[in-house]
């Protein structure tokens, strides 16, 4: 009996200490990890869609709350004038959600471009939606355009053999455009 109690006590004590240690390290590194993800996963896409900006895009990010949901908005500035914003949105692709960073020019309400942040599409087929050949479809389109593939009556040329992936990106862009007016309003308020 005494042996059982000792086993239970020792194991519980070890797991409790380990749990506490992990929780404290997790809180300690949380902020830095978030920053690293922004820099390494979203950074390249953000820099691509807002490429003519002169400010530090990652550092000048803002958090905007719409309908209790938090959006990280990256603001592009040229000579201290805010000219463009971008934020991430997602759409269902072939292998899972596709993360799409959509950039908007605040003056003309046109898309400055899109960049794919994360995806699980088939390498060599669906993954082609990350390439410039597909993403440049979206550049300099107006937000009033129909962001669907050509077969569905839209303005986007789908990647051959990757219709579902292409539609996923389109739906992410549509969701993003639905949010854009509110985000624009809040950015211009500041």
């Amino acid at each position: 009996m005494k042996e059982y109690i000792k086993m239970i006590a020792v194991l519980s004590a070890i797991t409790a200490v380990c749990g506490f240690l992990l929780a404290s390290i997790k809180t300690g590194t949380e902020e830095r990890i978030e920053e690293q993800i922004l820099l390494n996963v979203k950074g390249p896409a953000v820099n691509q869609v807002l490429k003519s900006s002169t400010n530090d895009l990652i550092k000048d990010r803002k958090e905007i709350v719409i309908n209790d949901k938090k959006y990280v908005v990256f603001v592009g500035k040229k000579d201290n004038n805010t000219w463009a914003v971008t934020f991430e949105s997602g759409g269902g692709g072939f292998g899972g959600d596709i993360g799409v960073m959509v950039g908007y020019n605040l003056e003309t309400d046109m898309l400055t471009g899109i960049g794919i942040t994360t995806h699980k599409e088939t390498p060599g087929v669906g993954s082609k939606v990350t390439g410039n050949l597909f993403t440049r479809n979206f550049t300099d389109k107006s937000i009033t355009d129909i962001f669907k593939i050509k077969q569905d009556g839209g303005v986007i040329y789908a990647v051959t053999g990757a219709t579902i992936s292409s539609k996923g990106v389109c739906s992410a862009v549509q969701k993003s455009i639905a949010l854009y007016p509110e985000i624009k309003e809040k950015i211009l308020e500041e």
Partner: peptide
């Protein structure tokens, strides 16, 4: 966690 924070 440390690698994620410092050697991403």
């Amino acid at each position: 966690l440390l690698m994620q924070a410092f050697f991403f």
